Amino acid sequence: MKVYYECAPCFLRQAKEAMDLACDDEDLKIKLMENVFEFLAKNYNENASSNKTGSQIHKMIKEETGCTDPYIKEKKIGNKIALKYLPMVEDLLNNNDSLENHVKIAILGNLLDFGAFELNTDIEKLIMPGLNKDLAINNTEQLEKDLKKHKNLLYLLDNTGEIVFDKLLLDKIKEYDINITLAVKEKPILNDACLEDAIEVGLDKYGKIVSIGTDTVGVVYSEISDEFREIFDNADFIISKGLGNYEGLTEVDLKGKDVYFLLCVKCSAIAKDLNLNMQDMVILKN
């Protein structure tokens, strides 16, 4: 996805929050913000990729502060929130075991995002209303047809916390006798899931876990490893979780692939791109 005008202040907001999480050195943070301004002045234009631009800013902050995982505390908070609501959503699924309900719960987990929201956002207050909302775009019927048609699925994971709810959808997907490959980030960025996060919540029982080979916000095709590029290129059935993966995959030729975007609309740029409202929940086939 190309940037919208409001992406610029969002980059600055995320940069400030990442710096505050990464270090207490005020002089370093001033220098870092100068570097961010300089980077945006050179690279922010109507053709810039939104998730690639954000990825480069976060990498810059990690390198200059020496903090490899600024959001480590927020990642634990996300898991704690997800585990708190897990019994409730499991009860909902016991009462309605449909694929659509599993999809909805997985999308609801996408609210656990400390990148799209400000750090002081009360994310828990967004979860309960979400349980009662219909999907704004609902391509679940097409998903079920593709689950019956394909033998292999590439599942692009997003955030910690969210991956707890992904387990419930993966349980349902397993009923379709399909081989699953789960993709995570090579190194921490924002609160995205890495290998150890996925293993910690037991995702390894659903299929092989692979790294995209880098630490980008979502998939940036030009930066993924050769090993993952081969996996991605050969995948004809993909479930993509979250905003970053949506932003990245809309920059990729997906011809010949059945790709489903599962996300909650958490910023005005995505809302414009999909012609939806904030907090709308979506399962959209490419």
Results as ranks from 00 to 15, higher is better:
Pro188Cys: 13
Lys104Val: 14
Pro129His: 04
Asp113Phe: 00
Tyr155Leu: 05
Lys145Arg: 11
Ile180Tyr: 07
Lys73Met: 06
His150Trp: 07
Leu83Cys: 00
Ile199Tyr: 06
Pro129Thr: 01
Asn101Cys: 04
Glu90Phe: 04
Leu108Cys: 12
Asp166Gln: 04
Ile199Gly: 00
Asp97Ile: 02
Ala198Pro: 11
Ile199Val: 15
Asn138Met: 09
Ile72Arg: 06
Asn110Pro: 12
Glu175Lys: 15
Asp122Thr: 05
Met88Leu: 13
Ile180Leu: 08
Thr140Gln: 03
Thr160Trp: 02
Ser98Met: 05
Lys185Gln: 05
Ile123Trp: 09
His150Cys: 02
Asn101His: 13
Lys73Ile: 11
Tyr176Ser: 09
Ala82Ser: 05
Ala193Gln: 03
Lys145Ile: 08
Lys167Glu: 14
Ala183Ser: 14
Asn132Ile: 01
Ser98Thr: 14
Gly202Asn: 07
His102Val: 05
Pro129Lys: 01
Asn101Thr: 12
Ile81Leu: 05
Asp192His: 00
Ala136Phe: 14
Asp171Asn: 15
Leu157Met: 14
Ile127Leu: 15
Leu153Asn: 03
Asp146Gly: 04
Ile180Cys: 08
Glu141Met: 13
Gly130Glu: 06
Ala193Pro: 12
Asp91Met: 02
Lys125Leu: 11
Leu119Ile: 15
Lys148Gly: 01
Asn94Thr: 10
Leu92Cys: 11
Asn191Gln: 07
Asn191Ile: 01
Glu74Ala: 10
Leu182Phe: 11
Val103Asp: 01
Lys151Val: 00
Asp171Thr: 06
Val164Glu: 08
Asp197Leu: 04
Ile163Leu: 14
Leu190Phe: 00
Lys80His: 11
His102Ile: 04
Glu124Asn: 13
Leu195Cys: 00
Leu154Thr: 10
Glu141Gln: 12
Asn120Leu: 08
Tyr176Pro: 11
Lys172Arg: 15
Val164Trp: 00
Asn152Thr: 06
Thr160His: 04
Lys148Asp: 04
Lys104His: 14
Asn120Phe: 03
Leu153Asp: 02
Glu100Tyr: 10
Asn191Phe: 03
Ile107Gln: 05
His150Thr: 03
